[in-house]
Design a protein around this nucleic acid. Structure first.
Length: 876
RNA sequence: GGGAGAUUAGCUCAGCUGGUUCAGAGCAUCUGCCUUACAAGCAGAGGGUCACUGGUUCGAACCCAGUAUCUCCCA
């Protein structure tokens, strides 16, 4: 039989994923005999497709989940999507437009029909893509934030919080997205640095014709909404204007000059136009001074009739026009460039309008306090911990959450308005009617008299319930699933949604189940390109994830992503990384190919006790190290640990030690033990590389129908007495091999030229025990013990002993002398530094005794080395 | 403007409470090898005043202060 020289992932990946599913390995059910391990997926946008960020994030989740499953836990990874109201609605509106349908021509019901049809057709593509990555989700549990059960959960929570007085309706300054035509929460607004213009406009002082007050503004188109000009009472330039009135340019309306210390004297001209409807600070100033509010904007950002001028024009067009007109009228004093910030919509990218608006809010103070505490006291641990600071600052300054959105795609707010303008909040219209009759005292009220609030709830108002709602914890708070799987264990997500989502889930968990939603939050970095730029469609710098999987295999891509992904650090994606992942797959494949290719001769004795003993010790030590990395969520280090174990220790050292000569058979015991080692390695690798490990697992030997590495027991370290000594002895032996190899390289001898080795050492036992290994790895025909340096040989020192490789006619005496002298000087320098340390009375007195002892040992070792080197030099 | 974090090899990062081998890994680089498991490979080598300046200490990449630069969060 022949095994392909290179591993071809495409041939096997789909097969194994299907088998795992057929076997039901990913399915989880409440099982009191097992410890639960639960992860809920950060639900991707239902309209989304897989991008590099998802690949990283879901690889990490899958590694955690697969390992937990192998550890014998009831591993449950719940997949699903969220409805992403604003993004999806925008997408559907655009699609309808292409078909010649305008949203405004549709009723709400008609629009939702279109939206759901679209979701059925295209939604959830991303979940199918996750399967290609190997994600071991329990697909039977797939949830969607807008499905009936989850919608009900959202409405129940809204009603509950309203009853508790935490949800309220009020007029507040909100972030208005004129493109999406909806309010946004503070977290959905992204500040952007821009170069803006500051316009200096002069307002004529009433009754003092020819006298002007100059204000500076970046938004001249809002002067029609001005209700005052404010100056600092301590500003001597304007003392004469206290109590005066000024006239708005072009418009002529008179507004008062008000005094407030809020106005900073050195910014702009020290005179501030006050436009309460269109600026948060102005609004607060307006409230304080009892000023009216004039809102001159329509929902789409165009000017309304209250503006009087430029009515119907978009805000930016109006700005251009008014600047021209102001200039012509002689009211534009000057224009300055200055660095400023504009707020933009996270979703539509439109410039946000601060706008006074009637919205629903959720009070945060009561929810934030306990949510902060559980992070402070590590009930919920953030990885890396530096995010605790960020979290704290946000939680301490959190403002009420604007939860209403002027959209249709989402859960419609269960508030019902009575004809008299008051409202009731209830889960259903029927319940609302009962309440409404009671509240109004009008028993004749009918359903048709009630009008439900037009708005829907923020998508995050669904997502924050996710860890509970996916287990139906609202509909049925005492069901077996939620009791068993909640709280979940680990959450893996990006720091960009720490507040949007993570913080709010913690709040919801504590408020509705009196328990945190998860114990650990692993925050991944952002995937960037090699130049450190964010991956974006515009830049075209993001590779297609599915292409990558095709090209390098899912295992290659998974490991490639993890190689350079320490928690919380951005990942600079480079194709080299997935290439390295693919190469690693191939390395593993070839190790398998070697072992599988051996013929067995049952008559052969077992010659590899030292190699086996060593690799067993190495394996145990590495498992301990690996588990530590996992406990600390150091995924990159965990991977690198197994990577080196497989590549360096197993392939480069162990297999080379036990490998029979070409086409020679192997003894049965070595084959048995080596196969066992490989199986252990497959288990350790499986969370990272599920496909190739499963393939090799089955190719290696016949397996029972349920016998998959996917559900094999996670290896446990088995401490063996004397393991440290075993590792140390082999290290010494390998140092000798290294010495010979270095000489081969330096002398250009090639790997196969037969050489002999002479050793001047006290530790002849080492040479006896490891004779076979040393000869094989260093390609030596003979190893002998000598008392004097043989003539015409190259020397090296390893572990305090001298070794000689006789090389008749190839010795450059001068070069040898130089090399040894250099090494000697280095050793002497080191000895001196140790001596100095030991001569220091304070060191000997203050340092821990074992430390001093170690320094003494160092000194002895170095002195042995110096002696050996000096003798070698003398012998030359 | 306020806050947090970072600065270690060409790149990406480790370096746990200051003290094992005068600073480690992977990738990249250089040299030599197509040695029948693997050239997607093998063997070997080079490479760092631990941002800078002071301080504490017997001893500092690690602790303290200041400076510079960068990143993130919030205004």
């Amino acid at each position: 039989m022949s095994i392909a020289k290179t591993y071809t992932p495409a041939d096997v990946e789909a097969k194994w994923y299907q088998r795992w599913q057929e076997q039901g390995f990913f399915k989880a059910k409440a099982n009191p005999r097992k410890q639960p391990y639960t992860v809920v997926i950060p639900p991707p946008n239902v309209t989304g497709v897989l991008h590099m960020g998802h690949m990283l994030n879901n690889t990490i989740q899958d590694v955690l989940v697969r390992r937990a499953r192998m550890q014998g836990k009831e591993a449950c990874w719940v997949p699903g999507t969220d409805h992403a109201s604003i993004a999806t609605e925008a997408k559907v509106v655009a699609l309808l437009k292409e078909q010649g349908i305008e949203k405004k021509d549709l009723t709400r019901e008609q629009f939702l029909e279109h939206a759901f049809a679209w979701k059925e057709k295209y939604g959830g593509i991303i979940l199918e893509q996750l399967k290609q990555l190997g994600a071991s989700c329990d697909w039977d549990r797939t949830r969607f934030t807008m499905e009936p059960e989850l919608t009900e959960a959202v409405l129940r929570v809204f009603v509950d919080l309203h009853q508790k007085g935490l949800v309220y309706r009020g007029v507040r300054m909100v972030n208005w997205d004129p493109l999406g035509q909806t309010a946004l929460s503070d977290e959905e607004v992204i500040p952007k640095d821009v170069m803006a213009k500051m316009y200096h406009l002069r307002y004529e002082v009433v009754g003092q014709e020819g006298q002007f007050l100059t204000v500076a503004t970046s938004r001249p188109e809002t002067i029609m909404a001005d209700v005052a000009v404010a100056v600092n009472p301590n500003d001597p330039r304007y003392t004469h204007l206290h109590g005066a009135k000024v006239r708005i340019p072009l418009l002529g309306r008179e507004i008062p000059v008000i005094l407030d210390e809020y106005v900073s004297i050195d910014f702009g001209t020290g005179a501030l136009k006050v436009t309460p409807a269109h600026d948060l600070n102005d609004y607060e100033l307006g409230v304080k001074h009892n000023l009216p509010v004039i809102d001159i904007l329509n929902n789409d950002g165009s000017l309304n009739e209250k503006a009087v001028l430029y009515v119907g024009q978009d805000r930016f067009a109006a700005r251009r026009n008014i600047v021209k007109d102001l200039e012509e009228a002689g009211h534009l004093v000057k224009v300055e460039e200055y660095a400023s910030i504009v707020q933009t919509s996270e979703r539509t990218k439109a410039v946000i309008e601060p706008r006074l608006s009637l919205q629903w809010f959720l009070k945060m103070e009561h929810l934030a306090k306990p949510a902060l505490e559980v992070v402070e006291n590590d009930t919920v641990k953030l990885h890396p911990a530096k995010f605790k600071n960020t979290y704290r600052v946000w939680m301490e300054n959190v403002r009420d959450w604007c939860i209403s959105r002027q959209l249709w795609w989402g859960q419609q707010i269960p508030a019902y308005y009575l004809p008299d303008g008051t409202y009731v909040v209830a889960l259903t219209a029927e319940e609302a009617l009962i309440q409404a009759r009671e509240q109004s005292g009008n028993a004749d009220l009918q359903l048709s008299d009630l009008r439900q609030d037009e708005d829907v709830l923020d998508t995050w108002f669904s997502s924050w319930l996710w860890p509970i709602s996916v287990f139906d914890g609202f509909k049925d708070p005492d069901n077996a699933d939620v009791n068993y799987f909640y709280p979940t264990n680990d959450l893996v997500t990006g720091p960009d949604i720490l507040f949007f989502w993570v913080a709010r889930m913690i709040m919801a968990g504590l408020e509705f189940r009196k328990e945190v939603p998860f114990r650990n939050v692993y925050l991944t970095g952002i995937v960037r390109d090699a130049q450190g730029r964010k991956m974006s469609k515009q830049l075209g710098n993001s590779p297609d994830p599915l292409d990558l999987i095709k090209q390098f295999g899912a295992d290659g891509v998974r490991t490639g992503m993890l190689f350079s992904a320490p928690a919380g650090n951005d990942l600079l994606y480079d194709e080299k990384l997935v290439e390295q992942g693919r190469n690693f797959s191939n390395k593993l494949w070839n190790a398998f190919r070697l072992i599988k290719g051996w013929e067995v001769d049952a008559a052969l004795p077992f010659p590899n006790d030292k190699a086996v003993e060593w690799f067993g010790a190495k394996l145990n030590a590495t498992i301990v190290e690996l588990d530590e990395h996992f406990e600390k969520f150091r995924m990159s280090d965990a991977l690198m640990t197994v990577y080196k174990l497989v590549w360096d220790d197993f392939c480069s050292e162990y297999l080379e030690m036990i490998k029979p000569a070409y086409q020679a058979p192997i003894d049965p015991e070595t084959l048995r033990l080596t196969t066992g080692f490989l199986e252990t390695l497959l288990k350790l690798l499986h969370p990272f590389m599920p496909f190739i490990t499963e393939e090799i697992w089955h190719e290696l030997q016949e397996r029972g129908p349920k016998e998959y590495v996917c559900v094999a027991a996670w290896p446990k370290a088995q401490p063996v007495a004397g393991a440290a000594e075993v590792l140390a002895r082999m290290e010494k032996a390998l140092a000798i091999v290294g010495g010979v190899r270095t000489i081969r390289n330096q002398k250009g001898l090639g790997p196969n030229k037969p050489l002999t080795l002479a050793a001047k050492t006290d530790d002849t036992q080492l040479l006896t025990d490891y004779d076979g290994i040393i000869r094989k790895l260093a390609a030596l025909t003979d190893v002998s013990v000598v008392t004097e340096a043989p003539a015409a040989s190259v020397c090296f020192v390893a572990g305090g002993a001298e070794f000689f490789v006789p090389l008749e006619g190839q010795i450059d005496l001068g070069a040898e002398k130089e090399r040894l002298t250099k090494e000697l000087e280095y050793a002497q320098g080191f000895r001196d530094s140790v001596l100095k340390k030991l001569a220091n009375e304070k060191f000997v007195a203050n340092a821990k005794p074992d430390l001093v002892e170690r320094e003494r040992q160092k000194l002895a070792d170095t002195e042995a080395k110096i002696t050996a080197l000096e003798q070698s030099l003398a012998a030359l």
